[in-house]
Design a protein around this nucleic acid. Structure first.
Lengths: 188, 188
DNA sequence: GTCTATAGTAGGATAGAC
DNA sequence: GTCTATCCTACTATAGAC
């Protein structure tokens, strides 16, 4: 198989496993078994486990940007776009209940490890933060746009952690409703 | 040294290291170096790493209950007690910026590991949840007390994750102010 | 109750054949 | 590009001396 295709498959599988089991808890053997490659062969594609993580983060940043760009074409009203983000916790409810937020849990894990790629992982938050900030600015709240963006991120992370701990779908819906009410005070 | 004292010291050190570095990332050698005990000697006190974790959780549950009981003697108004909880993210700001919330990060990590003690760790959340629920009930909101308690927990977890990722003290203060405003609508 | 020595395993990483 | 074989290190856990 071509190098590029195999590399992309490794990143895709590693992405899923890092999310489901965590970075530390995922071994080369795990990725190899899922991809269908021998352990030693990874080193043809990546020079270390960290470099796989780097590629995974890069891939997540890119796919997040694509998703946000798509939301912009699907909704003209910035408030609808923001609600689209808020509702991720419902849309991806099963994954989040099982494994938490992919961005939040990765940042939390890398912070404990004091890992070199902690800063790169934080960029994943920043992609959302910047985009949310822009939406609030479009709604006419340029002066407090970043603060409001952070508040929406705070909501999403809090819901993700507790929905993961309690696996409670109803709790998530109540929090989303509360957020919708809050957001309506900032809409046009 | 007596068995009980050594055991208590192991739990205390392990508690701190599990918080600072995470459970997986903390080895017996790490704990041993900090306590001043040889690796092999742990097994006189604990039969496995998991049993140390169990003791750490037990210890955290007990100290949390003590803390909450103390808050009840210090504040007569349930709203003041709730604010005392809300302000943990400021009071323990440096630790939370550096290592996240001890309860949230442990729950997140154990969920990824699908660890046997996940349920025990969740009790740590439940201690706070039940106490907060009781305070809202005292404020006359018995019908929605658990929902309000979960909302306060959601705030604390969201703030902890983002304050850990961005190490931003001002962000925390803004969120606490927002929470104070919200809480005032439920006070007497 | 504490120590050293060591077994046993798993994981990251490398070398070299095909 | 992929494989097997292997090295090295770190870790959990046990055995047995003191």
């Amino acid at each position: 198989m071509s190098s590029a295709v195999t590399r992309a498959r490794i990143v895709e599988i590693a992405d899923r496993l890092f999310y489901e089991r965590g970075y530390q808890h995922t071994s080369f053997a795990d990725i190899g078994a899922a991809v269908g490659l021998s352990r030693g062969n990874f080193y043809y594609h990546f020079k270390s486990k960290d470099s796989i993580l780097d590629a995974v983060i890069e891939s997540r940043v890119a796919s997040t940007r694509r998703m946000l760009a798509e939301w912009e074409t699907e909704h003209d009203d910035p408030a609808d776009r923001i609600m689209r983000f808020v509702e991720i916790v419902v849309t991806n409810g099963p994954d989040i209940r099982a494994h938490g937020c992919p961005v939040g849990t990765l940042n939390t894990e890398l912070a404990k490890l004091d890992h070199a790629l902690r800063g790169r992982a934080r960029e994943l938050f920043t992609v959302f933060r910047t985009w949310l900030r822009d939406q609030f600015a479009l709604l006419g709240h340029a002066d407090q746009a970043d603060d409001l963006a952070m508040h929406v991120l705070t909501f999403s992370q809090g819901v993700a952690v507790l929905s993961n701990a309690y696996r409670d779908e109803e709790f998530v819906r109540r929090e989303v409703d509360r957020m919708r009410d809050w957001l309506s005070t900032y809409s046009r």
